[in-house]
Design a protein around this nucleic acid. Structure first.
Lengths: 250, 250
DNA sequence: CGAGTCATTGAAATTACTCAACCCTAGTGG
DNA sequence: CCACTAGGGTTGAGTAATTTCAATGACTCG
């Protein structure tokens, strides 16, 4: 599993490498350097903010287990969820060059996180331009995803938007190897789905019933099942291009 | 005006440097290297797509004059505008690491653009880590702006959202030195405003009338005047933090 | 002057929200 | 083992924001 050294237990760097392998390629030397990087691990409770507005993070986070999500809250208490992050995602690479958090990063489920200090990571990235470009690319893909969320929330009706989000999650889960058949984890409540799609939980509930009735999707108990991906993708006008995943070459 | 050589006419690199100076700092050597970079210039007509979905750009764009905007169109012809770019902005730095365009970049007005070939820019960025980090930072700030647009379009009513967009444009214009007093260019039609805010032009029109009646804002003829920035910012819950502009130290 | 683009207005239709209640399930403590 | 609780899911009825459609006005440019 992409270990630089078959005997060594898996490191946080190895997990990050596995993520990078979904969006690009790197050499064995790159893998060895990142795999050997120093890291800590922490656990976080559900709903706990890992990073909050105003924080000045000193480490980059790699999700080892569980899910995180990104969100902001406005004056009257409405939250906007801006992204979901599953195992192997590195949701705050941007803190390398943006000192202050302008939003929050929270745990969607109890989660286990790897922390790589900025200094340590910067040292490796400076020495290995290829890894630096992969890290940059990763942040650019996140940009692309934000753009797509903007399209989704601005220009799609509730059913198509929900379908689109489901397609995204399933596609990313598949890319990471976390889907089994037409099924993957997605431990969001209807409330949180609403916060992501800029809908109320009541409307999400009604929209879910629609999708369920058409037999396209099941969503309950934190699991997502897509019975007919093509039809769902068509409803959602979902084109995975924006995720800029690496073409599989194996 | 930040020229490495007082006698040399201003280059595309110099313009890009001026943009970078709003988000960070760099050395004289950095300035000399980027100022001397090879570039071409082109002119584009209003409404013309400079880059289209599927394109594989080979150059980075610096806006020398006029405005660009980023947009996507969905099946039923609805457009979502994802960003506005004024003089000195470099709206497609991300193409350095994302081969295929997943959206369009178009001219909001007739515009003059500087083009720096990826190869030439990469060479300079590889040699000058500080410039590379500034370029990366610039793309990260764009990310942050997308997040804010997501909040705006998802969680704000029409009046607050419009006010927020106006605050953003004015703040960026001021940072670039393009505002005079409480006035700056913003050559968008009400239709385009609607495409940015995910509203119909009819509703934009009515919302503009509201803002006008309260005496906060004037918007006509491609000019934006904000009579009371503080009150407008309050209505919009506008906090410029997300633009991550450099603290002025002069 | 005429054509085209953009701005404005009115009335009807619709989507999604709000509020409030109720249900279901899992976990907890007596 | 059952009652209680809390979190999430579901439902209904009324409401508000925004869209739609269609027409009219204003301005600019050739």
């Amino acid at each position: 599993m992409l270990r630089a050294d078959g005997d060594r237990p898996e490191t946080v760097g190895d997990v990050l490498l596995r993520h990078f392998s979904t969006i690009g390629t790197f050499s064995d030397d790159d893998a060895a350097a990142l795999g050997a990087i120093r890291a800590r691990e922490i656990s976080v409770e559900r709903h706990h903010n890992v990073l909050s507005i105003g924080d000045k993070p000193t480490a980059v986070i790699v999700v080892l287990k569980g899910w995180l999500y990104r969100h902001s809250t406005n004056r009257n208490g409405n939250r906007q969820v801006q992204g979901f992050y599953m195992t192997e995602d590195a949701p705050c690479l941007e803190t390398l060059h943006i000192a202050h958090m302008d939003h929050n990063l929270a745990a969607l489920t109890p989660a286990r996180l790897g922390l790589i200090d900025h200094g340590d990571l910067k040292r490796v990235l400076d020495e290995r331009p290829n890894l630096l470009h992969l890290a940059w690319r990763d942040t650019l893909i996140m940009s692309s995803v934000y753009r797509e969320w903007l399209n989704r929330n601005g220009r799609m009706d509730a059913a198509s938007g929900l379908a689109h989000l489901f397609c995204e999650v399933m596609t990313r889960a598949r890319a990471g190897g976390f889907a089994s058949g037409d099924c993957c984890d997605f431990p969001a409540t209807q409330e949180v789905l609403g916060e992501a799609l800029a809908l109320t939980s009541v409307h999400v509930n009604r929209t879910l019933q629609l999708l369920r009735q058409t037999g396209l999707v099941e969503f309950s108990g934190g699991r997502l099942t897509i019975h007919d991906f093509n039809r769902l993708a068509d409803l959602a006008e979902f084109d995975p291009q924006y995720l800029h995943l690496r073409e599989k070459d194996a």
